[in-house]
Design a binder for these strands. Structure first.
Length: 151
DNA sequence: CGGAAATGCCGTCACTATCT
DNA sequence: AGATAGTGACGGCATTTCCG
């Protein structure tokens, strides 16, 4: 799978819309644009052996779960169910709960991997900077020796 | 010391690539 | 074609840092 990483990972979200339908629409529109605008990326393959066990918080449920318990999709699913018996509704709800749970775990894993990837890159930068420093010193020493021989 | 800004983490949604 | 996994983007909340 081809993955792209934004160059700037963190950003502060200063605009605060609610959790209602309008905000969801705005969110969706904004997302659709922004995800296509992004052209620059870098592959997220971890090539180093500098791995580290990520500190993943235990799965306590967050706040935003309470924010929008009935999304548009759920409502649509519920509508389908309400036309017939109760069973399809239950199935839809169960299916949604399962999907959310899986996605929650996937997101956790994704973040863990991303952090590990960033750590690897940082380690690599540190190693390369050290190597660069060493090589510069070596070059300086050799130049020095050469200078003395010429004289 | 209190409020604002910054940062970190989380859950969710939308989208895409891949699998079956 | 539908199911699934992975991930970017977003908003919300908690905590930390900064500054008047």
């Amino acid at each position: 799978m081809v993955m792209s990483m934004p160059l700037i990972v963190n950003c502060t979200h200063s605009l605060a819309f609610g959790c209602g339908n309008i905000s969801m629409l705005q969110k969706t529109l904004k997302r659709t644009v922004s995800s296509r605008e992004r052209g620059i990326g870098c592959s997220m393959a971890i090539t180093g052996d500098e791995t580290e066990a990520g500190s993943v918080a235990a799965g306590d449920l967050g706040n935003s779960q309470l924010c929008n318990p009935t999304s548009n999709r759920l409502k649509a699913e519920s509508r389908v169910g309400s036309l017939g018996s109760q069973k399809p509704l239950e199935d839809a709800l169960q299916k949604r709960a399962l999907r959310l749970m899986k996605n929650r775990e996937a997101a956790r894993e994704c973040r863990r991997k991303k952090k590990e990837y960033v750590r690897c890159l940082e380690n690599r930068v540190a190693v390369l900077e050290q190597q660069n420093k060493t090589l510069i010193d070596e070059l300086r020493a050799l130049k020095d020796i050469y200078q003395h021989k010429v004289e």
